[in-house]
Amino acid sequence: MRCEEVREVLPAHVKDGSDDLTVRRHLARCPECKAELARYESLMGGLRTLQMRSVDVPAGLFDQLLAIPERSSRLDSARHHVARHRKVYVGGGIAAVAIAGAAGAALWRSKARRPLTA
């Protein structure tokens, strides 16, 4: 078995092992591939240690999280307000469009009635 083929399977082999005898036999005989496996094993060990390691949180995050209940109730009341007044808003919008349209039409008519002075 060629080294390239063995190295292709090492990322899977490192965690779960391999039942493939040819891979195991190659690893037993090839110091380069064995060293490569050792690098993957170091990597896996390093990744595992990250689980118990927390990073520093940005300043202010904790306070933002504490304020979430209040923020959530503000969002909820805003949402309820919008839902309750949707009909009013929609009605108001239609009325505003109608008024603007009427005003535009009146303006257009008054301009059209003006005699040409050229």
Partner: peptide, 27 residues
Amino acid sequence: KVRVHRGRKRLKEIMFPEDSGTETGER
């Protein structure tokens, strides 16, 4: 599975760049 495999491989290449050349022997 492919993502995990590729991710480990890339990570190994980043962490051990001087060793990422592959020998071409056959054993």
